[in-house]
């Protein structure tokens, strides 16, 4: 029951965000283009992600490696 509620709420929030999208021109993207607004892991997080993939059972969905190459799971 609980996961269903969480899933429904997540979908509702996501849909409301998508429907509220407003057109952003290139010259209006100064904040979105800020180096710290990047929608990915930063280079300095590389070793953190590596040790987390060794020490934890879950990995992936973070635009990095999701198996192989380091003897980890």
């Amino acid at each position: 029951m609980k996961p269903k509620i969480i899933f429904t709420l997540s979908m509702a929030i996501t849909l409301s965000l998508f429907t509220s999208c407003s057109a952003v021109k290139e010259y209006q993207k100064s904040r979105l283009n800020d180096a710290e607004m990047i929608l990915a892991n930063r280079k300095i997080e590389r070793t953190e992600l590596s040790f987390q993939s060794y020490r934890e059972g879950a990995s992936g969905a973070n635009a990095g490696k999701s198996g192989g190459g380091c003897g980890c799971n």
Partner: peptide
Amino acid sequence: NSYSVALSWSQIVNQRLQLAFL
């Protein structure tokens, strides 16, 4: 051997907010 497919969608919502689904 490891094989993976990674799919993502990034979306700008407004001048201050952006999202990504992976």
